[in-house]
């Protein structure tokens, strides 16, 4: 699992998930999940609430240790790390340099007692940025990228609308150019028009920055718009996976068929 030659590294998975299961006592959170995620790929995880998709995301993003299985991450130097076998120091270091986590509720992902600028600058300072002017410049740049008025840089996040808070959370996560982003229902709780704008923004940033993304959503329209590939979960297990269009236009598993048709009916 150590360094290999870098050639063709684009064809090696960024994340290899091997037979992950998580049990809450004796009830199943998720079971026997395996997949590979490649650089620049967006993977959607869909299913109704209680299907295990949020549990799986927590396991993947190093915030909930799985009961069994392993997750391998390939870093910028092509070194591979088993993220639950490495030290907590290493894991936390990866979390603030290579990964980003966009929470469903922006209040969980933002620092509410400091300004928008400080929220964006935090990850830069965490990895050693010590020039106020540069940090502020960067923060302003990111406010622009996520379409927030630059005059709001010194305002507290609490004074922002829900959609702005979510965009701020995205900026805060992307500022130090992570490679892998985890998102849990990023458009949940937002008005439809606000959702559309956020989705547009996400789509643009993902392709501009060549990000790999794992996004959990119960909303098939969101999944279709953002993801290249889909995994459908039911009762903790993956029941179907494939290219997004394939899965949504020609669902094989009865549960997927039900999911797709219920959207059509609604």
């Amino acid at each position: 699992m150590q360094h290999e030659s870098i050639s063709l590294s684009d064809h090696k998975p960024l994340l290899s998930v091997n037979d992950i299961s998580h049990y809450y006592g004796n009830s199943i959170g998720c079971r026997n999940v395996s997949f590979d995620l490649y650089p620049g790929e967006v993977l959607g995880i869909v299913g109704e609430s209680g299907s295990g998709k949020s549990t799986l995301l927590k396991c993947l993003s190093a915030s909930l240790a799985p009961s069994t299985g392993s997750i391998l991450y390939r870093d910028r130097t092509d070194a591979v790390h088993d993220i639950y076998a490495v030290s907590e120091a290493k894991r936390r270091m990866l979390a603030r340099t290579d990964w980003g986590i966009v929470e469903q509720n922006p209040r969980d992902g933002l620092r509410l007692n400091v300004s928008a600028g400080a929220n964006i600058g935090e990850r830069l300072m965490a990895v050693g940025a010590r020039h106020y002017g540069d940090i502020r410049h960067e923060a302003l740049g990111w406010l622009g990228k996520v379409e927030i008025d630059l005059n709001r840089v010194d305002d507290f996040p609490a004074t922002f609308s829900g959609g702005m808070q979510q965009r701020l959370q995205i900026a805060r996560n992307l500022v130090n150019k992570p490679r892998l982003i985890f998102m849990d229902e990023p458009t949940g709780g937002l008005d439809v028009s606000v959702q559309a704008r956020l989705l547009d923004l996400l789509r643009r940033l993902v392709s501009e920055l060549n990000l790999s993304v794992i996004i959990v959503t119960h909303d098939l329209a969101v999944a279709r718009l953002l993801s290249h590939r889909l995994m459908v979960m039911q009762r903790g297990e993956v029941v179907e996976s494939g290219l997004t269009d394939q899965v949504l236009d020609d669902p094989h598993h009865p549960y997927t068929q039900l999911l797709v048709s219920s959207v059509l009916v609604a």
């Binding site: 120091a89 940025a129 106020y132 840089v153």
Partner: peptide, 22 residues
Amino acid sequence: RKMHALQEYGVMHVKLYEDIAR
């Protein structure tokens, strides 16, 4: 205690940043 152990001190500068911004 974890932050000290791992030298995760970025948050101290967040406070200083906030002072200068305000």
